[in-house]
Write a protein that binds this DNA or RNA. Sequence first.
RNA 1: GCGGGAGUAGCUCAGGUGGUUAGAGCACCAGAUUGUGGCUCUGGGGGUCGCGGGUUCAAGUCCCGUCUCUCGCCCCA
Length: 414
Amino acid sequence: MAQFQPVRGTHDILPDDFARFRSVIDTARLAASLHGYREMATPMFEVVDVFARSMGESSDAVSKEMYAFTDKGGEHLALRPEYTAGICRAFISNGLQQHVPFKAFAWGPMFRYERPQKGRQRQFHQIDVEVIGAAEPQADVEVIALAADILRRLGILDKCTLLLNTLGDPESRVAYRAALVEYFSAHKASLSEDSLKRLEKNPLRILDSKDEGDRKLVADAPLIDNYLTQAAGDFFAAVKAGLAQAGVPFQVDPRLVRGLDYYTHTAFEFVTTHLGAQGAVIAGGRYDGLIEQLGGNPTPGIGWAGGIERLVLLSDPKPQAAPMLAIVPVGEAAEAEAIALAGELRRADIAVELGYKGNVGKRMKRADKLGCFGALIFGADEMAKGVVKLKDFASGQEAEIARGDLVAHLKARA
RNA sequence: GCGGGAGUAGCUCAGGUGGUUAGAGCACCAGAUUGUGGCUCUGGGGGUCGCGGGUUCAAGUCCCGUCUCUCGCCCCA
């Protein structure tokens, strides 16, 4: 290959794209802060065990998709495939149990060695929300409502459906799992090849199968409702009631399950039909056992992650450049003066573009192309009079403004 | 990891059954217009046709491999 190209599954984010990318983050950050979540970040890589122990050794994310490596010091590290494990590790490392409930918002790159597709990359980016140290269903409701608020602000809530389910507490889950294994084992002959593997590894996932034959079996499979303990059932009822109170519509989907071991109780997904096979836009759930698995004191938690690229694909925000003004000097003296003027305006928080070269025509053309709303033109004549000409591109009108009044004039204009 | 589709200029794409200097639109640059942008006109730069190999007198075109993208499965955001 003659030329370098980005590594498979990675993408450059060029300025126009970045504007959309950032607007998703900004929107999420704003909504999160309105709900009392504070932004934080953890490293992009961790000791491998942080992920292996939390997500489960056998999960695909850990066993086949992890960017794991040994550094020069012999440490076994991995690029993070998700955010939850790292934030929980940080919760433990920093003794944050004194701050519970700890409410965090974060975003950043994630890495999974998967086969790339639209809406699925090897380096992708997530926004993430976690509440650690809250066992109450109100936390579930708040976290989900926050996700819905972000989707609403992005103008894509109506393209998404909120699917909701419960996996119960550990006791419920064990009982349900056993019931599923019994049921599907009795029908092994008609199970798909994939589902036979699932039966060994993660029987719950059979419920999620897309195979035609599996679906028929699943239709008659036992439902978790019958295996929930009283407490787990009450918890789920409280979450549903809370969502209704919050005005967040949802659809209970008994087939919604999670791939990762650490989930308990509430599981949810905002899904869309607009992204092909990559339907999940924001997904998460409760993980009451996770902190303990990572070596902390038993601490409940709940959170979700949303794929920024997927959110960008779904929304189509017009990249809106900040209003900018071009400075167009004429002649050598003006050229020098322009540098001073640009500095003066920028210190006053007025965005200006000062071309490096070209005659008036060129600079005007460039100013127009950049989307400037106007240009400040001045040469020897204007300098002698102590004014600059402000040309408004929309109207084509020009006005002479005293140099001393310029900042005030431009401020007033906005 | 498995199965399908596709790669020609920065972008969107033309290039019947192989045939000689590979095209268009948009974009970019320059000039008409060295103190005035958008519109128009004129000209220009830019491609080892994803990459490597094979068949042939001759390959963008046919064959094989490979890389990347894409659709689905797996899995997931």
